[in-house]
Design a protein around this nucleic acid. Structure first.
Lengths: 146, 146
DNA sequence: TTTCGATAGTTACAAACGAAACCAATTTGG
DNA sequence: CCAAATTGGTTTCGTTTGTAACTATCGAAA
């Protein structure tokens, strides 16, 4: 490789982005196809399903979304009556979000699909490759988390 | 972990996306800050810098961009006079794109910055972790490339 | 208290995006 | 040959996004 050339195919930011984009696009067919959810909506559903009641801020931190995305996703899920808001007693800026039964039902339906998707994807790797990707991602996450 | 719950933090599509988003956002400051480029524009520049003359279709394949993104990026780089189009002799639908001297200069300026960015990021990993991420990404790429 | 700075969440606006329609040129196959 | 399907590339339109401004509330400090 020449010194003054960048090989895009092996450039880490590009590889990561392309891979994430492909995987994410593939997976989005699951929740988009099933319920017409956007990614922020899916993540909101997943966050609340996993943790029960949360605030919008907590949701944003857990699922790495900007607060405007959270705000819009919450508004949409509320419109669908998949979640309800309850104002905090102490601090009236804060709202506690909880899935309704309908929301919970959708979540419970999605979980096995998500797990199957992941399993399917990982099944194409060898055991050693699975270890490698897990370790590599964890290392990068740690490196960025500072 | 309960069987009917999905742990978002360890869900592969989510981890990949979050990581790519963080890295990409960080790196975008390099080309956005330096020249006000968008990501498709940067990739177009990188593609042409790496390969010399290319068609729009080839660019899209090499850098994994939808053809509308390519079309818009090319239009903008042309507006900046960073590239020129030359119609194909044989097939008049095709255009061959080449960086001008100005475009080449910008590319040459970006390459070391990109390399430094990647080096900096990887320097936070151990040698073993670097091997792991390389191997893991390659395995996933291979798994998806079908 | 009153005021000033932070924080929770929403909204407005412009930029970026994707899907699909579109145009023009080319290839295919009857 | 000629109609139909394909391909390279652009445009249009509605949706999603990010930035920044905004509202409302709270906590701290004077």
């Amino acid at each position: 490789m020449e010194a003054d050339t960048l090989e895009l195919e092996s450039f880490l930011p590009y590889r990561l982005y392309r891979l994430a984009d492909a995987v994410s696009r593939e997976f989005s067919r699951v929740y988009k196809g099933r319920h017409g959810l956007t990614r922020p909506e899916w993540r909101t559903l997943a966050g609340l399903g996993q943790h029960g009641t949360m605030t919008a801020t907590a949701l944003g931190e857990q699922s790495a979304m900007h607060k405007t995305k959270v705000s819009r996703a919450v508004a949409e899920l509320e419109r669908r009556r998949w979640l309800t808001r309850k104002p905090d007693e102490k601090d009236r800026r804060v709202e506690h979000l909880t899935l309704t039964n309908a929301g919970l039902a959708a979540y419970r339906e999605m979980v096995p699909l998500a797990k199957a998707f992941e399993r399917e994807l990982l099944s194409k790797l060898s055991a050693g490759e699975r270890v490698a990707i897990a370790e590599g991602l964890a290392a990068l996450e740690a490196a960025l988390g500072r």
